[in-house]
Amino acid sequence: MPKVQSHLHLTGAMRPATLDELATRHGIAVPPLAALTGGPYEWAVFQGRYDAARAAIRTADDVARVVREAAEDDAADGCGWSELQMDPTSFAPALGGLEAALEAVLTAAAAATLPMGVVVASSWARSGEHATTLARLAARYAGDGVVGFGLSNDERLGRVEDYAPAFRVAAGAGLLRTPHGGFFTGPAHVRDCVELLGATRVGHGTSAAADPAVLALLAERRVALELCPTSYPPFGVHALNELPVRALLAAGVPVAIGSDDPLLFAVGLAGQYALCRDVLGLSDAELAALACGSITSSAAPEPLKRTMLAGVDAWLAG
């Protein structure tokens, strides 16, 4: 079934074998990164593993390999368009600065066999001023491969209002705005991401299901939630069979499924849809609604969107 990858981080897109090879090549000691399938874990456990993996990406060639393989994996899972999220700050020391880090990813994305866009992300752990710096960087590359601006990491680490100036810059450049929110925090945080940051999508946002008013706001403004089923059980946020996908769809909220960090959660995009079918019991029509939500809320070119939507209709009819 045609679909869009809406929520995928650069480091977390790395194949385990690629991580092993790059770590060995660069002489970096990376502890074994067993998939985060147990738990519940504290966020620090996730961040420590993620940081260890990120340290293995040292050159533009490393970036190119990770992006190429991520595109291959998404294409194999039925993607017609993929949006890859990266924080230039994380790679700037190794690659020669913020701009060089972003350009390495954009060059790799442009060469991929699957059409891709790049979402520049700051972090809830950094200041609003730093986020504005990255938003201005993203704005300079709008139209040249950058399609969005976001905030990653644990949303409890920052105040929503501090990032409003950065998101105004992103909005002025016509970029998607996709902050993480409503993962550890309640529905009020999701509402603030929409009302204070002008979010066009929210990364995760599952807590919105607990507040009918927030659901109504998301539905009215057509703000999509990026759900990544395997990301929640390890942190005790949701059991797989409790993920409120059906409630969100019933409320008219657009939902896009993503894989987040397959390196750490061990499930790619098609596997996330399979879990929605096998664990949540979603029908083919509901799975098609998820695919359509991923397509319509993406930055894919309009002709490509129409082609993918027609493909979903054909899949459902067949």
Rank of each mutant, 00 (worst) to 15 (best):
G182V: 06
V67F: 05
P244A: 04
P179D: 01
S231T: 12
A210W: 03
V105P: 02
A104V: 03
R68C: 09
D192S: 11
D87N: 15
L280C: 03
V190N: 10
L225K: 02
R191H: 05
D278R: 11
A52L: 01
G39V: 04
F149I: 12
A166E: 01
E42I: 10
G27A: 06
L249A: 00
A188L: 14
R126Y: 14
A285I: 04
V190C: 01
T37L: 10
G252Y: 02
A274F: 00
A274S: 08
G97K: 10
N241W: 05
A300L: 04
V67E: 00
P229F: 01
A247E: 14
E195M: 15
A173P: 12
L197T: 08
L225W: 10
R65L: 13
V223S: 09
G293T: 01
E42G: 14
A291D: 02
F46K: 08
V279A: 05
T178P: 06
R49I: 08
H204V: 01
D87C: 06
S259F: 01
L248W: 06
A170R: 15
V30D: 11
P115Y: 09
G158K: 03
E220H: 10
A34L: 10
G158F: 02
P233K: 13
P16Y: 07
A317D: 13
L95P: 00
N241L: 05
A289T: 13
G186I: 03
G145W: 00
D192L: 14
L106C: 03
Y50F: 14
A53I: 12
R25A: 12
R191D: 05
L102F: 03
A108D: 03
A199F: 11
A288Y: 06
L309Q: 09
G236T: 06
P2H: 06
R58P: 04
C276N: 01
V202G: 07
L196F: 02
D73F: 13
A300W: 00
G145E: 03
A56D: 09
G117D: 02
L137T: 04
G80M: 03
A216R: 15
L290Q: 09
F265Y: 14
A285T: 11
L249D: 05
A100H: 08
A71G: 12
E155P: 05
A108E: 09
A121T: 15
V118E: 02
G181Q: 00
E83P: 10
G128F: 05
V147G: 10
V169H: 15
A188Q: 09
L197C: 15
V4M: 00
L175E: 09
A125I: 08
P88S: 00
L98D: 07
S90K: 07
A52I: 07
A100N: 03
A300R: 01
G150M: 05
V279G: 12
G182Y: 00
L151D: 01
C228H: 04
L157F: 13
T200C: 12
L215K: 14
W124N: 10
V30H: 13
V223K: 13
E83D: 14
A209H: 02
G205T: 12
